[in-house]
Amino acid sequence: MHPIEIEGVSKTYVSGFWRRARLEALVDISFQVEAGTIFSLLGPNGAGKTTLVKILLSVVRPSAGAARINGVPCSSVDARAKSGYLPENHRYPNFLNGLETLIFFGRLNGLPASMLRDRANQLLGLVGLDEWKKMKIRKYSKGMLQRLGLAQALLNEPNVLFLDEPTDGVDPVGRKEIRDLLVNLKSQGKTIFLNSHLLSEVERISDRVAILNKGRIIRTGSIPDLTAGALIYEIDLEGGISAELMDRIRRTVETAMISNKTLTVGLHARSELDSVVDLLRTNGFSIGGIREQKLSLEESFMQLIGKQP
């Protein structure tokens, strides 16, 4: 059993007075998330990321398909008992202070009265809000609200944690603290489902990634899977290269350019690298080294999204 299982989930929004306008927000989404991993869902605005998380938390009903959290259908109250959620742009009752907010949401999570205050205080300390816990949250900054939101999501010691833009509005130090906290939670066996636009952060902490575009999953895989496969290599040479040889190389590969004794080639297939090396060796060049040029997650993401119709 996986902590998150999604099978053929689709969501179509129907609107308009005659309910004829239809928007396909999600189309036949299926995947599982392994226990004790950080899974990130990436996609441009309007791709359907938040809708998918809302379906998993029963805030939105799917039009088709099924999803389970910890083996329980996501529409069940039990599925939400052991999951935590930090929504994007969350709004808290602003007449409460930080401590009262956590106590209130702790009650909603069904925590026993005897442990509410201790748990709230412990989490406020964990997210660095101990000093501000008696301040009304209407006076909190965006970053403080984000930290409070994270504490709120952890109240019921969830097995599965859904975080929508958890570092939004948080300063770089705070971001690092949140990243460390997520890695620590993962080491405790928690499963973390992350929605984020900050691809560099996702790249640092995620075990697996799914890319969603226009309601469809277009790629899933680990970070090395997604960032490899560009077939771009850098070859260090020990001398200058003639124009004639460059022409011959260009006819062999997709792209080729020379800069500072480094030849960069883009290949159609891995076997073309051997042909380039052979050409260089037969022309008397000594090869200092060959490196595969990896894409960043952002470059990979942009390529994948760009290929979509």
Binding site: K54, R80, P87, H90, R91, N109
Partner: peptide, 15 residues
């Protein structure tokens, strides 16, 4: 039921 608040309330284990 405002955006950002509804999600907080409805994602809790209460019907």
């Amino acid at each position: 039921l405002e955006k950002g608040s509804a999600e907080l309330f409805l994602s809790k284990p209460i019907t």
